[in-house]
Each structure stands twice: as C-alpha cells, then as structure tokens.
C-alpha cells in the first residue's frame, strides 16, 4: 500500500525476479552519496513516506509529487563535520537522525521541522567517540561510546520536538560494542555484537546486561542486524563485513544464528547460510526476515532469511556498481543507491 502511495506507476526497467522497479530519484547536486533512508512525514494532515538522501555535507528530504517524480522538500547543510550515516528511527514521524564524524561517529543530530517557527532546524543529541548507534521504536536511540578506558552504553528517549526527554545508562560489556539490533516484538530487549565476536543481551528497562554469548571463531567481526525470540531461543541475524570471499565455499553475506539464552553454555545450535551469490558482503540492511546487501561484485542481493534462499539480484547496471541497499521503513520497498546520488525504489 505504501509503495502504491509513493508512486502508482511502474517504470520500464529491469525486473529482477521479486524486485520491481517503481521509481527513480536523482540528486544532481550530490557528488558522493553517503546514505539513503525513508521517514514518515506528516504535513497538513497528510502522512506519507518520504525519502532521505545524504551526502557528506547535506541531508535532503524528498516527497512524491507525481508518478515517478520526486521533489526535494528541504536540504539541511552540515558543513562542519561530514555526515556518515542516516540512523533509522522506526515508527517515528517528522524526525531524521544522522551520525556525523570522520573515521568514527563524533556527533548524533536530529533534523526536523518546527511548526512553531515554521522552519527546518537541527539539534544535537550526543557527542563523543561513538562506536555504534541504533534507532528503536518509540523515539529511542541507543549508542555506545568510549571515553578513556571506559565504555558508556546509553539509551536516549527523544521528544517529538527533537529534545532529549530521558537518558538511561545500560551496563557495558568489557568488550567494545560494535553494533546493536532490536529484538522483534520485545520492546525492552536489545542485542549487540562486540569486538570480541560475542552477542550480548540487555534489558532496556533496567539497564541490566543479561547475557554474553560467543559466536565462535569461523567468522570474525560479526555485526548484528536483527533478532527474534521464538520457542525459547534467540535468533540473531549477523553479517560479516570482514569475511574473505573464498572460491571453494563462497562467503555468507548473512548468517542466522540461534542461541539458547538460559543454557549454561549457550552454544550456537544452528546456522543458516543464505544461498551464495558472487561477491563478498560490503554493507546491507535487514527488515523483518528479508536481508539486502551490496556485494563486492557491485550487485545488490536480497535473501529470504527464514528460508535461506536468495530472492533477487540486481546486477550492476550502466550507472556502475551499487553502493547502498536499504529497506524502506515498514517494508514499503527496497532502496538501492549509486554513489552519484541516483536512488532506485523497488517493490519487493
């Protein structure tokens, strides 16, 4: 429904199995696209899904104007520190969250529209040596940062107007947290991966660190994307950006790993390797049980993680290699982007 709302007409173009090209937008002023995302936006009583694009110094908000026609609503200019990531805030309206920094995140800012002053503005949420950050439902933001030898893990609840309502400190693990992921359907549970290749679990209400479970040594530098609790087991979707492509067995872009959180030794009980596609994982995104990744071959591949099968492949086109693959919020489609600022929206 949301995809229909965005652009009702299909373009002629590549139809890669279960992916259908719906529309394209091109930021002609963008020299190097950094990230792309979507956000719910409500204006004049109308709520619609808008696209957000980011370059190093700008973040732009796009609205659907007509079939296959996107218009730039506003561009925030952030010239002091480069933009490196758009942080998705699920189910949140009229707020865009971005991470700025050089090699690592130094600032997290909210970009928003103020009806009081009838103007677009941005506000600072957090500064520091931020290693990982995730946006959660109900306008919550969790981040890990390092100051001297100390690691701080903190959840910030945001107000509708972009302020910080509440801050909760979470117990840090000894190892540096490299990524966070929400546990589907469990509002107070959060998982993370660590530099020591472990999965950790927190209670967000109490701040307790509940478990630390080692992933094993087969694939280092695991990054968590999503987790699900089912039948007493915790299933965690991991990617391995540092995994080397091997000719003999390929490189798994994602793995779904199951843990028994209450077992004394919560050993990995099973792991699903999605079907192999040429190229190793560069970066990607998971929504519900669908994983999408940009591969070193320049293609974007989409997997059904429950069945472990590859659902679609977008080969690199005339515009060159794909650089970005993101699910639209609410599963409204897949956004695939090139570095030149071209973004294709696909229905999945």
């Amino acid at each position: 429904d949301t995809a229909e709302q965005l652009t009702p007409v299909l373009l002629d173009g590549p139809r890669e199995e279960s992916l259908q090209l719906v529309s394209e937008l091109k930021d002609s002023s963008c020299s190097c696209a950094v990230d792309v995302s979507t956000v719910w936006w409500e204006a004049a009583g109308c709520r619609e899904l808008r696209v957000v694009t980011a370059s190093e110094s700008t973040v732009s908000l796009w609205e659907p104007l007509a079939p296959d026609c996107w218009g730039k609503v506003y561009t925030w200019h952030l010239r002091e520190i480069p933009v490196i990531q758009i942080i998705s805030l699920p189910d949140t309206c009229n707020l865009v969250c971005v991470a700025l920094g050089e090699l690592e995140i130094g600032e997290i800012r909210l970009l928003l529209y103020s009806s009081e002053t009838d103007s677009f503005k941005h506000s600072l949420v957090k500064t520091g040596n931020i290693k990982a950050v995730v946006g959660l439902k109900d306008r919550r933001l969790v981040s890990s940062s390092r100051a001297m030898q100390e690691q701080q893990v903190e959840m910030v609840s945001l107000s509708e107007t972009g302020g910080s309502k509440d801050r909760q400190t979470l117990m840090p693990p000894e190892e540096t947290v490299t990524a966070f992921a929400e546990v589907e359907g469990m509002r107070e549970a959060l998982v993370g991966t660590t530099a020591g290749n472990s999965v950790v679990v927190w209670n967000l209400k109490t701040g307790q660190l509940l478990r630390k479970m080692h992933v094993g040594y087969s694939y280092p530098a695991s990054i968590c994307h999503r987790a699900y609790s089912d039948s007493g087991l915790l299933f965690v979707v991991l990617s391995h950006p540092l995994a080397k492509e091997s000719e003999s067995c390929g490189s798994p872009a994602f793995r779904v790993v199951a843990f028994n959180p209450v077992a004394t030794s919560p050993v990995i009980r099973g792991c699903i390797r999605p079907c192999r596609v040429s190229g190793a994982y560069l970066e990607g995104d998971v929504w519900d049980t669908a994983g999408a990744a940009v591969l070193t071959s320049g293609a974007v591949a989409v997997w059904d993680l429950l069945q472990g099968r590859c659902a679609a492949v977008l080969p690199p086109g005339p515009a060159g290699h794909w650089a970005l693959a993101r699910w639209a919020t609410g599963g409204a489609g897949l956004l695939a982007g090139h570095r030149d600022g071209t973004v294709h929206l696909y229905r999945y």
């Binding site: 679990v201 209670n203 509940l210 609790s229 087991l233 028994n260 209450v262 030794s265």
Partner: peptide, 23 residues
C-alpha cells in the same frame, strides 16, 4: 536438534535472566 541437545529451554528466558542478573 533434540531438546536434550539444546539444554533446558525457557519460553520466559528474558524475565528469568532479568531476575538473576545483577542490577
């Protein structure tokens, strides 16, 4: 895997671990 392979399973693992973990 059989249940014995997995060890004891708790459907309320989150509540159980929260009751046991240090505050």
């Amino acid at each position: 895997c059989s249940e014995s392979d997995l060890g004891p399973i708790s459907l309320n693992w989150f509540e159980e671990l929260s009751a046991e973990a240090p505050p």
